[in-house]
Amino acid sequence: MKQARPFLLLIAVSLVVACANQGSIKAVRKEGGPAPICTRAWQLNSAATLELDASQPKAVEFTSSSPCLVEPGGRAVTYFSFALPSYSAPWVLRVESHIDGRALFAPEIMLINRDRKVSRRIPYERFSLRGNQLQTTIFFNSEHADEQYLIVRSAPDVSGQGTTVVESGYFVVPIIAGLIPFFYMQGTEREREYVLSHSGIVKFYALTQGLLSRPGEN
C-alpha cells in the first residue's frame, strides 16, 4: 500500500483538476470604460466566430459596457452576436447562463438568416434551470442552413425579477480521535437570492458529436 500511495495521490489530484477544469471560463468579450451608446439595430459586422467542437466553450461576459440595443418600445437590452459556421452537417449548440454573484443573465436567442431576418427565436421560457445555471439546446439541421448569425440578448420582460432558492449541500470535517480518524458530515441549507439580469456569464458549446442516440450509450 505504501508504494501505491503516490499513485493514489496522483489519481485524486487528477480528478480534482479535471473536474475543476469543467467550469473554466474563457471570456471572449469584456469591455471596460464608459457604457456604449445603444443602437437601434443589431451590429452584426463585429460578430464573433463560433467554432464547432472547440476544446473550450465560448464564454461571454455581459457587463454594463456590453453592446446594447434600444427596442421600439424604448427598452434597452444587452446583446452579443456570433457568426455561425457554414452548414455542412447537423450540429447542436448548448447555451448555459451561469449565476455570477447575485446576477443571472436572462437569455433570449435569435437566429438571423442571410436576408438578415429573424428565422427562429428561443425565448427565455425555453431555458431550463439546472442547479445554478439556465440551459437550452438549439438544433441546426439542413432546414436551418441559411442561418448566418446568432444573437443572444437579455430578456427585457423578466430582467430585474428576483428569486430566492434554497441551496442544499454538505460539509465534511476529518477528525482524528486517538488512532481512529473519522469524518464528521453535516447536511446544510442556505437561502440564496439572485436577480435575472442584463449582465452575467453565458457559455456556448457548439457540438457535432456526443449526442446520446441509442439506448445503452450511457
Binding site: 493514489l8 489519481i11 485524486a12 480528478l15 480534482v16 473536474c19 476529518p174 488512532l179 481512529i180 480518524p181
Partner: peptide, 17 residues
Amino acid sequence: SGQIFWVALIALGLQAC
C-alpha cells in the same frame, strides 16, 4: 484508516465528475 481515507477521497472525486 489511511486506506479508507484515500478510497473516500477518490470516490468523492469520481462523484464530483
